[in-house]
Design a binder for these strands. Structure first.
Lengths: 164, 164
DNA sequence: TATTGTTATACTCTATAACTATA
DNA sequence: TATAGTTATAGAGTATAACAATA
């Protein structure tokens, strides 16, 4: 809209930009994370809390250091996260090596995780309201292929590092 | 794994949790955003910068306040963002109302946006490496339906608020 | 008095590094 | 000396609020 040559305008090269699948994935993904954060926020949890609870439930007895590695965060952050889960997670000193803790869910932690699962189911349903069951299955299959090829660790996503 | 009743374990209700489409969307979305950030980082830009450039290119002459609204951020943040786009974006005082600026891309800004588009195309291709052209089209269609039903504004996503 | 853009301040979040205890 | 966990400090990033110019 000005000088001699027009380096571009919104031409062909822009096709993969804000209208491509990659952009939509990022946009919908961020939206999904926000909505999920709202839902678990009603339970007094952040998405990071949920990730931690799930990880502990899946493999009880792990140390904080092991969790830090799996989450891709620094050990000191795990301290803060677990401090915020008072009453849901229990720290037991290991008998074998009393330097580290073994992490377990309390009974209330288990109930809370159940509530999280119900929230996740409602979230899933609301997010995919536009699709019928067949389409949902189709989408799931495509996403699984992409996730596997991109070598994304099942059950953990970078968003665990923040959000509220 | 302990007391009387087992409130849950990893039973049916957890089905929509870390294995559902909503979770995968959030996970892949965050991954996509990170990879895109890396690519445009080589151009000296953040994803937020890119969003701003695209928005200005799409509708030149807008004011900073208008952009702030569309991006969903506070006006003072737009000041910071535009300050970081020295040489790519031009502020022209409006003749009609000299309080506000009219924002335009410079020639270099246009060239940079062209480079961004090429980066986005490469990003798209790498992210969807697991899918053939038909599957990509299928995925795109499904995502478009979801985005429309969720009333996501085309071209802007919440991730513009941060990242690097 | 209301509005655009700017600057100054405060707040939140996270990582880095120093520290304690166990080994 | 090395490692698990904790605490203290500092850094990045963002919003809130006070400010100057124009209407």
């Amino acid at each position: 809209m000005n000088s001699s040559r027009q380096p571009h305008t919104t031409d062909t090269a822009a096709a993969a930009g804000p209208r491509g699948a990659a952009f939509l994935l990022a946009q919908i993904g961020a939206h999904a994370a926000e909505r999920f954060a709202e839902r678990v926020g009603h339970l007094g949890l952040t998405p990071a809390d949920v990730g931690l609870l799930r990880m502990i439930a899946g493999r009880p007895g792990r140390s904080q250091r092991a969790l830090a590695e799996d989450l891709g965060v620094v050990p000191s952050r795990v301290v803060t996260l677990i401090d915020g889960l008072e009453g849901l997670v229990e720290r037991r000193r290991s008998a074998e090596d009393r330097r580290n803790y073994e992490l377990h869910l309390t009974a209330e932690g288990g109930r809370t995780l159940g509530a999280v699962s119900r929230a996740a189911a409602a979230h899933e349903d609301a997010l995919l309201a536009a699709l019928d069951p067949d389409q949902r299955a189709l989408l799931l299959g495509l996403l699984e292929r992409v996730a596997a090829e991109q070598e994304l660790t099942p059950g953990v996503h970078p968003g665990y590092r923040a959000r509220g």
